[in-house]
C-alpha cells in the first residue's frame, strides 16, 4: 500500500512518496525513501514488489549515469529517460521473471524549459500526465486532483493541492503510511521539501 503521487505544475514537478516500508502486516521502517535521482533533473519514484523496486530503480540510475559519462556530460532528456524505462520494463515483461515495478518519473527539460511527469507501469504503459499516482493512492487522490488541478499552478499551489490529497489519504487509507517525502524537480535540480 505504498503511496506515490506526482503533480506537474507550470515551473516544476512535485513527487511525493510514503515513508513506510511494510512487509505483510508489519511496518519495518518509517524512513523509507522510494525515490532515486537519475541525473540532475530526473527523479524516479517507484512502488511494487519489494526487492524488484530498488534493484530496478538503481539499474536505471546506473544506465542513465553511464549515458552521461559516455556522452561528454550530456544528459538524457526526461522524454528519453521515460522511453528508456518503458523499454526496459517492456522487455522485462517478456522475460522469464519480469520486474513487478511501477514508476513515476518527474523531470525538467532544460532545452525546452518544460517540466514533465511520466507514469509508467510494469506492463510498459507509458503516459505523460499533468498528475498521476500508482496503487491505492490513485483511487483517493485522482478525484481531488481532477477537481482542483489548474494548468497555471506554480510549485506552491501544487504543494497546497498535495496537502489536500494527503489529508484525504490519511483519512481514508486503512493503514498508517507514516507520512511522505516530497521532492520538487525544477530548472535548478531536485530539491526535498521539508515538513511533510
Amino acid at each position: 500500500m505504498d503511496i506515490i503521487l506526482g503533480i506537474r505544475v507550470a515551473d516544476g514537478t512535485i513527487i511525493a512518496t510514503s515513508k513506510a516500508a511494510t512487509r505483510g502486516i508489519s511496518v519495518l521502517k518509517d524512513t523509507d525513501d522510494k525515490t532515486r535521482p537519475l541525473n540532475a533533473r530526473n527523479l524516479i519514484a517507484y512502488t511494487g514488489e519489494s526487492g524488484d523496486t530498488v534493484q530496478f530503480a538503481e539499474y536505471i540510475q546506473a544506465n542513465v549515469q553511464l549515458y552521461s559519462m559516455r556522452e561528454n556530460d550530456i544528459e538524457l532528456s526526461p522524454k528519453a529517460t521515460a522511453s528508456f524505462v518503458r523499454n526496459q520494463l517492456a522487455s522485462s515483461l517478456r522475460s522469464r521473471k519480469p520486474y513487478q515495478v511501477n514508476v513515476l518519473i518527474g523531470g525538467y527539460d532544460v532545452k525546452t524549459d518544460t517540466p514533465s511527469l511520466n507514469w509508467i507501469d510494469y506492463l510498459g504503459t507509458q503516459v505523460e500526465l499533468p498528475y498521476g499516482a500508482h496503487g491505492y493512492a490513485a483511487f483517493y487522490a485522482t478525484s481531488l486532483l481532477d477537481k482542483h488541478y489548474r494548468k497555471d499552478m506554480k510549485v506552491d499551489d501544487g504543494l497546497a493541492l498535495l496537502k489536500l490529497c494527503l489529508k484525504e489519504l490519511e483519512t481514508r487509507m486503512p493503514i498508517d503510511f507514516k507520512g511522505v517525502y516530497v521532492k520538487v524537480v525544477n530548472k535548478d535540480g531536485i530539491k526535498e521539501i521539508e515538513g511533510y
Partner: peptide
Amino acid sequence: KTYNEEIPCEI
C-alpha cells in the same frame, strides 16, 4: 526505439 528520440550524430 529505446529513447524515442533521433540518435545524436556523434553517437
